[in-house]
Design a protein around this nucleic acid. Structure first.
Lengths: 124, 124
DNA sequence: CAAAAAAATGATATCAATTATCGTTTTTTT
DNA sequence: AAAAAAACGATAATTGATATCATTTTTTTG
């Protein structure tokens, strides 16, 4: 994967913003910083960066997709009220729910775990 | 929560289809079964059923939201090629990734875990 | 039971996030 | 330097989902 000027800027902007921003939020942020570029370019680059495992894509129910500059398999906690997302250290693998509560102080009420891989039918 | 005729039909249709369908797919399915109703009604009912914990809502990256008729906290595995979703028994809490591989035969390459709860700021 | 209140529906307009298109520009390869 | 490949920008189009609102159904209650 090449690193164009725009791709660098998208990646930098994502690293600067610590809010797990949406593509649209990043687009606005770049625009405000005189790094204006086409919305399509922001979407395209985030997509590619995620496909190549550089960044992490977060699917939030009822909202736009969000991005995390760090792709180290760490966990996320989302507030049902404000939509804010907090990070949880990756070592909380066992007893996940109570670990998540400890790590963030949230009152956990549900949890969604999704794995991604290639199924038998598609493996060929 | 009341159970209107339409809500019953949506729930039945969801239970019949074992594919974790999207709202739109359910709408088409109902239409084909002479149980035609407004798309808005299908969306509304799925939303309410999920909010009340009767069904489970699955956010899939880059796709429409999907629904699972069973809300028992079990895990899901999605194929990066065809988008198909398989179920994983809920007892695979520790060593989640290798358990997921065993349960489904998929070659797991990533995993997203999201918790939902109310943060300190919104707790009042 | 009948009237009033509440909830749900249907049809459709609208919104918002994302992708597609395509001609142009930039970057990489040879 | 020429050719090929990749990326960009602007904008149109798509699509999943929600909002609106008049009508219908269901529930409550006097």
């Amino acid at each position: 994967m090449n690193y164009s000027k725009q791709r660098e800027r998208v990646l930098n902007a994502l690293a600067e913003k610590r809010n797990h921003p949406t593509a649209d939020e990043l687009y606005a942020y770049l625009k405000a910083q005189q790094c204006s570029m086409s919305p399509a370019t922001v979407y395209r680059n985030l997509h590619q960066l995620a496909d190549n495992g550089v960044v992490m894509r977060l699917s939030v129910p009822g909202g736009a997709e969000r991005y995390d500059p760090v792709n180290d398999g760490h966990l996320h906690m989302i507030c049902s009220e404000c939509g804010g997302i907090s990070d949880i250290p990756a070592n909380a693998i066992c007893d996940v729910v109570s670990q998540a509560r400890k790590a963030t102080g949230y009152n956990v009420n549900s949890c969604s775990i999704m794995f991604y891989g290639v199924c038998k039918d598609c493996e060929s």
